[in-house]
Design a protein around this nucleic acid. Structure first.
Lengths: 212, 212
DNA sequence: ACGAGTAGACCGACTGGTCAGTCTGTTATC
DNA sequence: GATAACAGACTGACCAGTCGGTCTACTCGT
């Protein structure tokens, strides 16, 4: 199901072929510089097929963002529910988030880069999506605070700061390939956990666990 | 000099009237949804005037970004040179950065939001600009490390994480007006200084200084 | 002191290329 | 023979950029 699976361009159904092609083109050229005809060509279908499955170019883009968002959210929640306490949940979320972005690099680029600055409609969508993720993070930060693992703080601002930090580092990587995820993860974990006041001992503990 | 001064739409020269108008329209509608004719109308000039002063729509946009970047960089360096040690410099940079974004809200929106996802040219420009700021931050993080004020860490990743965190929080504010800068600054300061391992005592000290 | 010449700054009607989306088919399957 | 799933030629709106023209201000020779 969905264009998010492993099969690259094989004998999948038309809708998914179109989406896979759209991901490729959008991630390379951005929304506005992508011609629908390029998606048509890349997907080896036809304009008719594209407009049979999607009412507009915009909706193709939104479909990609939404399916990926759904997947990411599902993975995050799955990863989180196996963890006992707030700090560990926050840590798990970070890990699975980076992992998922790493796995779907092109889509990550669409999600984090191309989806910005596209005018009203997209803007609101983006805010809504980020708000959802921020809410997830915030809730576990709150949990960690109430469990006494970290000192009280403005968890909303902290949640957005986290998202921003992750965004920027991933964007950088997506663009330049530069700091590879393996190098990034440890630093980011340390930096982010420190930022909310998790004790150094606790951080070391989590690092040990991650290393096994 | 420049459209960045206080006069809103008065008797400034044509070039600056055009830039001021462009800021207004770009920040509201984004690059692609902005028609050159809208800038013409808003600036109370003419298409001829616009294309007399700028060779293309793109260059108008770049002119805004560049002038603002220049201002921001200048302010940052100014603020920094009066501070003695690395941690204090990093702190000063954060403060002046937020302040400047706060003062030029529309331009901040253009700079942080509308400038993303616009295709090759802009993309590279953005990367270059951010790299410049990241380098500034990194150098003072490195200084703080070598002064022994903070433990060693991957300062490059940390610098980008900082930029991302600030970005996201400011973007949120620019969009929704939500967490006001006054509320954001203390949290962000604490969170960011903690993230690089500045001791709680040292953070409190800086907070005291800021409060006077 | 004055008209002619020149150039910089500006005006705005027009154009020409570009695409998103449409529409009239065609093919396969039930 | 009906319907879903396509194919691809075509169109029409939209808009960045152009281009001939105007309007000062300034210079300079007489």
């Amino acid at each position: 199901m969905s264009f998010l699976n492993d099969s690259p361009t094989s004998e999948t159904n038309t809708r998914d072929r179109i989406l896979a092609a759209a991901v490729k083109v959008f991630s390379n050229k951005g929304y506005h510089d992508t011609r629908v005809d390029e998606i048509v060509e890349e997907s080896d279908t036809s304009k008719g097929a594209v407009y049979f499955h999607f009412p507009s170019k915009q909706r193709i883009f939104l479909a990609i963002v939404e399916e990926f968002t759904g997947l990411l959210e599902k993975k995050l929640l799955e990863a989180i529910e196996h963890e006992p306490d707030g700090v560990r949940r926050v840590n798990a979320a970070l890990q699975i988030g980076l992992e998922t972005f790493g796995k779907y690099r092109s889509i990550a680029k669409i999600f984090l880069v191309q989806a910005i600055g596209l005018g009203q409609t997209f803007e609101e969508k983006r805010l809504e999506i980020l708000a959802r993720f921020a809410a997830i993070i915030k809730s576990y930060l709150d949990q960690a605070v109430s469990e006494g693992d970290i000192p009280p703080l403005d968890t909303e601002v902290a949640a957005y700061a986290w998202i921003g930090a992750i965004n920027e580092v991933v964007i950088r990587w997506v663009h330049t390939g530069q700091p590879e995820p393996e190098r990034v993860l440890p630093t980011l974990r340390t930096v982010l956990l420190r930022s909310i006041g998790v004790s150094e001992d606790h951080i070391h503990e989590l690092e040990q666990e991650a290393a096994r």
